[in-house]
Amino acid sequence: MRILMILFIVVPALEIWALFEVGKLIGGWQTFALLLLSGFAGAYLAKREGLKVWANAQRQLSAGQMPAQSILDGICIFAGGLMMMAPGFLSDVLGLLLVFPLTRPIFRQALNAWLRRKLANGGTFRFYRW
C-alpha cells in the first residue's frame, strides 16, 4: 500500500518535470499540441489494436479454444490506452510500449508470469478500498 502511495506522488511529479523540460525545449504551445496529439493517437492505437485482439479472441472461441493470450493482450492494450490518454510524456512512452504489437509480448509475458506465481502460491486477488 505504501508503494502505491509513493507512486501516486512520484509519478505525477516526474510527469510535471518532463512537461516543463519539453516546454523549455520546444515551447509551451508546441508542448500542449504534442500532448493533445499523443492523447488522440493513443485513443486511435488502443482502439485499432483492441479490435484486432477482439477479433482474434472471437476466432479462438469459435474454434473451441480459450483466448488466454488475447485476454492478456487486451489488458495490456487497455492499460496502455489509458496511459496514452493521460497527460504526460512518460506515461505516453509506457503506454505506447504496452499498445505497440512488437513490444506488447514483453508485458504480456510478465503479466502471465505474475498471474501464474500468484495462483501457484494460492494467492488471492484483492481490490483495496480507500
Rank of each mutant, 00 (worst) to 15 (best):
S70R: 04
A43T: 06
I77E: 00
N56Q: 15
I71G: 03
I71T: 09
Y44K: 05
I71C: 06
R59E: 08
I75C: 08
G50S: 07
Q58C: 10
W54T: 11
E49G: 03
A63C: 05
C76R: 03
Q65A: 09
G42Y: 09
Y44P: 09
A43D: 13
A79M: 09
I75M: 15
Q58L: 06
Q65C: 05
F78Y: 10
A46L: 00
I77H: 00
A57H: 11
K52Q: 13
K47P: 06
S62Q: 15
L72W: 07
Y44W: 15
D73M: 02
I71Q: 05
F40E: 00
G50D: 06
Q69W: 10
G42W: 01
I71Y: 09
F78W: 10
K52Y: 15
A68Q: 09
F40M: 07
I71K: 04
P67V: 07
I71N: 10
E49S: 01
M66C: 11
R59G: 01
R59I: 10
P67L: 04
L61E: 12
G64T: 07
G42A: 02
Q65N: 11
G42P: 13
P67M: 05
K52I: 12
R59L: 04
G74E: 00
K52E: 14
A68W: 08
W54Y: 08
A68V: 15
